[in-house]
């Protein structure tokens, strides 16, 4: 996997990871020796599978060692769910050819049991102390001209690897308000750009080349966060005993707050719902 980093607004090659390291260095060296590093050569670097993104629950539990309590629950959608429409990928033939079946919009995904997917659930207040960023890296992949996953969450200081698995050009246009905004081109298949964030917030990421592409990144200053799955469920583990303000944030519906108190070893519950 070819890794790049931005230095003073310029993309710099920072080597490869895993078994592709030697090959990539060799390719770059050969290009430099030949004095004509063609764009086609760069594009020939095959996409390699990126580091597997840890599930958000894993990320939360892996670094939470301070307590034994947990808060679990479900985010529900009440009533008739909006009908998702198919994305029009024809603006880029590469995108259109990637999928055999229509790709549906992901703004609102409601499971069969009424669970609302892609909701950030996190401890907004009540968690005290400093939490080291976990070593596990989170991946936001551009694959088939959609972001995978649609929502990612990580801790302040944790690495988010932007990956382009497509054989077309993407740009990653991040729209944070607390962190530094950026707009990075990713024209080379397989290229990875690592990013870290200093401030807590949930922000949108979009691709201006393919305007239907959007994703949301949640950055938190503690490890107690999760993103709901297809069934709308979530679990925040490893909490010390205490009273917490738990927030649920969905890109379409906004934010809801709940106050939950848990003791050592207790399993608290929280339920959120939208719609109706």
């Amino acid at each position: 996997m070819t890794v790049y980093a931005e230095e003073n607004g310029v993309l710099k090659f920072h080597g490869s990871r895993g078994v592709t390291t030697v090959a990539a260095v060799g390719l770059v060296s050969a290009s430099l020796l030949l004095g004509c590093a063609k764009e086609d050569d760069a594009r020939a670097d095959p996409p390699s599978p990126g580091p597997k993104a840890p599930s958000i629950t894993q990320a939360a539990t892996a670094t939470a060692t301070a307590g034994t309590a947990s808060i679990a629950g479900k985010v529900s959608f009440v009533g008739e769910a909006p009908v998702a429409s198919a994305l029009d990928l024809n603006a880029d033939p590469v995108c259109a050819s990637t999928h055999d079946s229509p790709v549906m919009g992901r703004d609102v995904i409601v499971g069969a049991d009424g669970g609302l997917k892609n909701v950030f659930v996190y401890v907004q207040s009540g968690a005290s102390g400093d939490y080291d960023a976990p070593d596990a890296e989170v991946v936001l992949d551009q694959k088939g001209c959609v972001y995978e996953p649609h929502a990612v969450a990580l801790q302040v200081g944790q690495t988010l690897n932007l990956l382009n698995s497509d054989s077309t050009t993407h740009n990653v246009h991040a729209l944070p308000e607390e962190n530094k905004p950026f707009n990075t081109s990713m024209p080379i298949p397989g290229m990875v750009i690592p990013k870290t964030f200093d401030e807590t917030e949930i922000f949108k990421v979009k691709c201006d080349v393919h305007p239907w592409m959007s994703s949301y990144v949640g950055v938190f200053d503690n490890p107690y966060f999760a993103i709901t799955g297809a069934d709308g469920s979530f679990k925040l583990s490893g909490l010390p005993a205490g009273t917490y303000t738990v927030a649920a944030r969905h890109e379409m519906y906004g934010e809801q707050l709940l106050e939950v108190t848990v003791g050592d070893g207790e399993a608290g519950e929280a339920a959120f719902s939208w719609g109706g």
Binding site: A91, D92, T169, C207, H210, P211
Partner: peptide, 9 residues
């Protein structure tokens, strides 16, 4: 002369 796809166009 960039690739004239999507928003680049």
């Amino acid at each position: 002369n960039p690739p004239m796809v999507g928003g680049i166009r």
